[in-house]
């Protein structure tokens, strides 16, 4: 532990080694390795059912991997005790695929949730947390009028924006995006991509996104990795992805139905 602490200054922000997870007989992650440097924006691409979401949930400590380690700032996430996991989790913000806004709360209460309810953070007065929430809403291009609406009254794209505002509100060091553009029209998708890029830059955060939308990947990523059958089979800079020379990556990037990648039948 002390050894890994002293290395933390030079070590990558997140280091994943030999991560394995299976559900029943179905192997989802099969020796997943990746290192992510501070301030980097990594996009993991891969087909549906390739284990992308499972990796994010392992990283958040929502799913316990069967084997392997996840080091965040040199501290163990995967096998650490509950308190350590919760401390690490406080460094992370997550944008869920469907937004996952709390529909029993108003928009501003959603955005300020971590400030109002989060354990271990200094609690602040509701009036002040509302101000912060409105500020965060403005930063994702939403006017103050939406603050008192309920999430169900908003369109899908607006919900995504609110969810993004909620993820960045506690100023996390690590931002995770689960298919941020799925289900959005191309214009709204581009808006969300721009917001992701600008909020990651403003926070100086390390970002990990998973997506199968190549337009989104090209826009967000500084580095792209491809996940196939539970392993990273290719990684490189965003510009290299077009001419990777890897038949799997080529098939995915160019969206061809014929190639080495076999279709995943069962959902995860």
């Amino acid at each position: 532990m002390t050894n890994s602490m002293t290395q933390a200054a030079t070590a990558p922000k997140i280091s994943v080694k030999g991560l394995k997870k299976s559900f029943g007989r179905k192997i989802v992650l099969d020796g997943f390795d990746i290192e992510i440097a501070k301030g980097e924006s990594l996009v993991i691409i891969g087909g549906s059912g390739s284990g992308k979401s499972v990796f994010l949930k392992c990283l958040l400590g929502l799913i316990h991997p069967d084997a392997g380690s996840i080091l965040v700032d040199g501290a163990e996430m995967a096998n650490g005790n509950k308190g350590a996991r919760e401390r690490l989790r406080r460094k992370m913000g997550m944008l869920f695929q469907g937004g996952a806004l709390f529909d029993s709360l108003t928009v501003w209460e959603n955005v300020a949730f971590a400030l109002n309810e989060g354990v271990g953070r200094r609690r602040i007065a509701r009036a002040h947390s509302r101000e912060i929430a409105v500020e965060k809403l403005n930063s994702v291009g939403l006017p103050e009028d939406v603050a008192d609406l309920s999430p169900a009254e908003l369109s899908g794209g607006m919900q995504k924006r609110v969810a993004l505002a909620r993820a960045i509100a506690p100023t996390p060091e690590i931002l995770l995006f689960d298919e941020p553009t799925t289900g959005l029209d191309p214009i709204m998708a581009d808006t969300i991509n721009n917001l992701i890029v600008s909020s990651v830059q403003t926070l100086g955060a390390t970002a990990i996104s998973i997506t199968h939308d190549m337009a989104s990947a090209r826009k967000i990523a500084t580095r792209i990795a491809m996940l196939y059958q539970g392993k990273i089979i290719w990684e490189g800079s965003a510009s290299e992805v077009e001419n990777s020379g890897n038949p799997y990556v080529d098939q995915f990037v160019h969206g061809r139905s014929e190639g080495p990648i076999q279709l995943q039948v069962r959902a995860l």
Partner: peptide
């Protein structure tokens, strides 16, 4: 509904049990 729409996961990521 909160479970299947990932709202329960979201609670955990917002440091709330």
């Amino acid at each position: 509904t909160m479970r299947v729409t990932e709202q329960i996961d979201a609670l955990e990521t917002l440091a709330t049990n």
